[in-house]
Amino acid sequence: MPAPARSRRRERPATGARPAARAVWTALGVLVIAVWIFPVYWMATTAFKSTPAMEADPPQLWPHTPSLIHFRKVVDDPLFWDAVRNSALVTGITVPVAVLVAFASALAIARFRFRGRGTYLAAVMLVQMVPHVALVVPIFLTLSDVGLSDSVPGLVVTYLAFILPFAVWTLRGFVASVPKDLEEAAMTDGCTRMGAFRRIILPLTLPGLIATSVYAMILAWNEYLFAYFILASPDKYTVPLWLTHFVTSEGTDYGALMAGSVIVSTPVVIFFMIVQRHLAAGLTAGAVKG
């Protein structure tokens, strides 16, 4: 799949724009890169600076004498690795389950007429309107009544409830914009309903599945409030909970906080870099048909 995607990109560079226009677009693109990367760059370089260097005037645009002291503090803490393991577990379960459950709902809504469809969609959205701070205590009480507080499954179902609205809505859009006649054509070509699903719907909605899973992953990986209330035992803490111990009443250990953030952001970015070329998969699949 990657090969055709790549060749396609080469053959159709920037939808045939004029060179002058292309230069302007590229310049704008570079500006976007700069604006979105700079705070992250600042965070990452801060993690390598000693406190005097962080406060230097004029600011050090790069760490003049890079120091690993903050990183060492993070990686030397056995609790950090526990937290990474817990977060990986929570995220590893949440992402596939969320995508599956949401995809099923999206198919139902986009491909079937049934009563209460619009209401379901609106209600899913409505549920999101209630501020999380107001929900966190009752959710904790619900989970603890059924014995799911202080447990990974409890955290996972909570995350599912907050991922589903975005996921269902996004995927519904993707499924809906797959032309029905494409599917029907495949079926008349001898494909079963499953076959049509696998060959037509799945590849064409892949970009949506990827966007959804990145969303789910980031939410499950970074969420703090619900994790703080639902989890009790320190050996179950996720990374964001662990990170907050650098925030004490006497001040915040910024260096360690930033170093920790750099380390925990990395898996998300790696995950995305691996899946991102499939964002172009829709095009490829379209080409199969054309």
Binding site: V137, L141, S144, S149, L225, Y228, F229, V247
Partner: peptide, 23 residues
Amino acid sequence: VSVQYQAWADHLTKFDASAQANK
């Protein structure tokens, strides 16, 4: 002995919640 470390920001809300859950 299970020592559970709490953040200053929300620890009392969590305490209130734990009391409601009898935990």
